[in-house]
């Protein structure tokens, strides 16, 4: 899409499913670009490798905000690692068979607006179908460690919390399943049948799971956003009877994270950790 953007990195890669581009106001629908720039700020200048690339025009008037973005048709572990290797700010999975123009209008900028757009971070938007079974919390924690944001000693607690937030977003959010089924006699069979049903529904598996990480010298914040029906945040258990079959995920998060905030009617969970 924007050939100049990756010239220095000697494209094309072995995997043509990865296409990098700069998100510029004149290249994506204006409302989308405005929304992304408003939420994530965006760099005032193009990255050095782009302005130095052959064909990059010099002595231009100040540019519009740019958010380094990578789109992929379908996410799997290897593609995501390859995407992270390139270090874009946003990595968005378009979804299988999706038409690119339509996918660009999807609400994949669902994460809360950044209070401090200049802080480092990255943002990942996956379809539920890919996120299920992909263990994206492992990939995200790998990347946080690699970028020096997460102390390997603290990783396992962060990973468990993120895992629980992602599991809630997928199962209760996007797949719309209630754990109460598990409490019924033989309910575990019914629950896995329902899970299989929902995973077979194309409209359901296209719902997005967004993970947004930002950090400063003191803390890391990770937002997990789904597109489900939300839930009554008053009911999120702070403690759970130890015989209960569900509800422990929130107990883990509240015990291990320094702060847990649920917003957007239960569709956004923000985990905060000390560094």
């Amino acid at each position: 899409m924007d050939a100049a953007h990756h010239d220095r990195r000697a494209e094309p890669p072995a995997d043509a499913a990865l296409r990098g581009f700069s998100l510029l106001r004149d290249r994506v629908p204006a409302d989308m670009a405005a929304r992304v720039a408003a939420r994530f700020g965006g760099a005032d200048q193009l990255p050095a490798d782009v302005s130095a690339a052959p064909g990059a025009r010099q002595n231009e008037p100040p540019r519009e905000p740019v958010v380094e973005t990578l789109l992929m048709d379908r996410a799997d572990r290897d593609r995501l690692r390859a995407a992270f290797d390139r270090g874009p700010f946003l990595t968005v999975e378009l979804g299988e068979g999706a038409d690119e123009a339509a996918a660009l209008l999807d609400d994949w900028s669902g994460a809360p607006a950044a209070d401090h757009p200049d802080l480092p971070g990255f943002y990942l938007s996956l379809t539920t179908g890919s996120a299920y079974g992909l263990q994206c919390p492992v990939l995200v924690c790998d990347e946080l460690v690699r970028r020096g944001a997460l102390d390997p000693q603290r990783r396992s607690n962060v990973e468990l919390c993120l895992h629980e937030a992602v599991a809630n977003a997928i199962v209760h959010g996007n797949l719309g399943l209630s754990s109460s089924v598990k409490g019924e006699p033989g309910g575990y069979r019914r629950f896995s049948e329902m899970m299989r049903d929902r995973l077979g529904d194309p409209a359901v598996v296209r719902r997005r799971l967004d993970i947004f990480c930002r950090w400063n010298e003191r803390s890391i914040a990770i937002a997990v956003v789904d597109q489900g029906g939300g839930f009554d945040t008053e009911l999120a258990p702070a403690v759970s009877g130890n015989r209960a079959r569900s509800g422990r995920g929130f107990v883990f998060m509240r015990t291990l994270a320094s702060r847990v905030t649920v917003t957007d009617g239960g569709r956004c969970t923000v985990l905060q950790f000390d560094r």
């Binding site: 575990y188 569900s246 422990r248 995920g249």
Partner: peptide
């Protein structure tokens, strides 16, 4: 290697 809250729920079942 790893168990989450859902896995613990499975143990109770």
């Amino acid at each position: 290697e790893f168990i989450d809250s859902a896995g613990l729920g499975m143990l109770l079942i």
